[in-house]
Amino acid sequence: MRKLVYFVAATLDGFIAGPDGSDPTGPGGFWSPSEDYIRHLVEEYPETLPTPARAALGITAEGTRFDTVVEGRKSYEIGLAVGVTNAFAHLRHLVFARTLTESPDPDVELVAGDPVAKVRELKRADSGKDIWLVGGGELAGALHPEIDRMIVKLSPLTIGTGIPLFGRTAGFAPTTWELTEHTTLKGGAAFLTYDRNPATSEPATR
């Protein structure tokens, strides 16, 4: 069965975005990734780069990890605000939104129903590649029981306040994770891969 993987950048103090929810690496953002960070993404996770960035960098590799990306409406609207209707046109792209009634892009699937039920459906349709949860925090909080793996791109900075890893409304659900892989870059960022520990965690209901 495919895994739901929360692949996300976070600060040392556990935030994925500033208080306004804007992209921390976008124009005017508070974090400018180092060259070795970008190089590591290109080499190891090329499918997670936005389609325009892939074109600019001449990236054609499909990648071996993900063929589907899911995100929440607020995360999706960051791209819409700058005229990008599908930041991941090279992947199957689903957006969970109850207030959007018509997709701005024919290749972006809007899902108004229960995100847990939809993700379970996606997991059963085994394609050989996993499902990337790009964010935001609110959707990650709703999908917490279904997340099988987290790959945290830990940035070497603190911001004090902002959008937490699992949003501001996530419930109390202690869960342990096993560190299965880690890469530390000279620029200070670290890629930390954690798998849900089934021995000590409440298993997700299938």
Rank of each mutant, 00 (worst) to 15 (best):
F172Q: 05
P115H: 13
V8E: 06
K3R: 15
F96N: 03
S103W: 13
H40L: 01
T205W: 03
K153C: 10
A17V: 09
M150L: 12
T68P: 03
L94G: 02
I163K: 04
S75L: 07
V116K: 02
E102W: 08
T85R: 06
A61K: 12
I16N: 09
V111T: 10
V119Q: 03
R168G: 15
G18W: 02
P203I: 10
V134K: 13
Y6I: 09
I16H: 07
A190T: 11
L165Q: 06
E121N: 01
F88S: 04
G128Y: 10
Y76G: 02
V134Y: 09
E43R: 08
V95H: 07
K186M: 07
T48C: 07
A189C: 02
L49G: 07
S22I: 00
H182Q: 14
L185M: 06
E109H: 12
I163A: 08
G135A: 05
L154F: 04
A81D: 10
Y37F: 12
V95L: 05
V5F: 00
D195M: 03
S22L: 13
G141V: 05
R149K: 14
F30G: 15
E35D: 12
V108K: 01
A87F: 01
T184N: 00
G21T: 03
D107P: 06
E121M: 04
D130S: 05
S75A: 14
T158L: 11
T169W: 02
A189H: 00
I151D: 13
R120G: 11
P106T: 03
A142Y: 00
G29E: 04
T169H: 09
T200C: 09
S155Y: 01
A89T: 07
R65E: 11
L122M: 12
K129A: 15
I78K: 14
A17R: 00
A53P: 01
I159L: 08
I78W: 04
I159D: 15
T169L: 04
F88D: 03
D23H: 02
T85P: 10
T180Y: 10
L157P: 05
T180S: 13
L154D: 07
E102L: 09
R92K: 13
A53F: 07
R124D: 13
G72C: 10
R39W: 00
T158D: 05
A190G: 06
L143W: 00
F191G: 05
I159N: 15
A87G: 14
A97R: 05
T193Y: 02
T48H: 05
G113V: 03
M1V: 11
T169I: 10
E43K: 08
W31L: 06
I38A: 14
F166L: 14
N197G: 08
P164S: 15
V42T: 14
D20H: 00
P104M: 11
P198Q: 11
T183I: 01
L133G: 11
P104C: 10
H144G: 13
I163W: 01
E77T: 09
D105W: 01
V84T: 15
L179G: 14
S103F: 12
P24Q: 04
D23Q: 12
R54H: 07
I151F: 01
A173D: 14
L49M: 08
E178N: 14
A53C: 05
G160F: 01
D195W: 00
P106Q: 12
G83H: 09
